[in-house]
Design a protein around this nucleic acid. Structure first.
Lengths: 152, 152
DNA sequence: TTAATTCCCACTTATTCAATAGGATTATAG
DNA sequence: CTATAATCCTATTGAATAAGTGGGAATTAA
């Protein structure tokens, strides 16, 4: 009886892949740069698409790039210093379910009288509460077998 | 520094309008059927679009329709019996952020080893926890002035 | 000097969102 | 009985977005 599924309330591949990328860098870190080609192979994601995702992580200082042969990317911090929320917000933008709540709320004609704004605000808080309290270190812990891929 | 905003994690107009529609029916209920034209005027939503949204609410038995002149729609239950989650799930489908968690999870190659599935599952739980614990009666309470519109 | 890599930007294809449009059916009021 | 007001049903549309592909320039290690 449920409606046919749309893309409502869904995370995009950009955000999911960014997380898998960061988790891959954390998992296979040796101190040497890791190339996107390696990440792409392990994660079964197009390397060209990863190339499009990583600049925002790079510009934000979440990773450091090393150009040229044997180059690649490295995390700049300890895995425990990255929350899932940081990474998602960078690649997906605001996680709020509507534009009138969240980081840069768009005000509407009747915000103080709007019962639904309260709903969206609570949803926003609940989502952020989750993603801001999980770090890459937690994800490393939750992986039972580091050699497998994470297909989500 | 945030990414340009997409539609990630957003509720669609369908779900938002369905909530406003149901809340309008609750707010202006007199026992007589309320026409979509009236709802559309009050909520400033296209009546033709509302016409497209209401069949699922009707088929699910959330509203009752009265055809012909002076016809319209009526809630079939007490406002306290409708949760925001019921209404959203009917019009938006599953609220899970990815397809591998939620009502009808699509299994993937490596679900038990997937650290990210745990993240999505927690997000899903958090969202549902909010929307399943707010009823139309709560929304009625939260409205300070019943004569205004709810523009969200 | 070659090969491997990041970097940058344009392009594409399919899907989805958010409506609009037209008309058939049903019932009420006069 | 007839005009009108409403639900019902299905098709179409235009714009935006998602999710990638493609080409090539710049940089660096071996």
């Amino acid at each position: 009886m449920t409606a046919e599924v749309g893309r409502y309330m869904k995370i995009s591949t950009k955000g999911r892949y960014a997380l898998r990328l960061m988790l891959d860098l954390a998992t296979y870190n040796t101190g040497e740069p890791i190339s996107l080609k390696d990440v792409a192979r392990r994660q079964q994601i197009s390397d060209k698409y990863l190339e499009q995702i990583i600049p925002s992580l790079n510009k934000a200082g979440y990773v450091r790039s090393v150009r040229g042969a044997q180059g690649g990317y490295l995390l700049t911090r300890d895995p425990g210093e990255y929350t899932v929320g940081m990474i998602l917000r960078l690649t997906e933008g605001d996680l709020a379910p509507v534009n009138c709540v969240g980081e840069n709320p768009v005000s509407c004609d009747n915000s103080e009288n709007c019962a639904l704004a309260k709903v969206w605000s609570r949803v926003n808080d609940a989502v952020n509460q989750v993603v801001d309290n999980i770090t890459l270190a937690d994800l490393l812990d939750w992986q039972t077998d580091y050699t497998n891929q994470y297909m989500i």
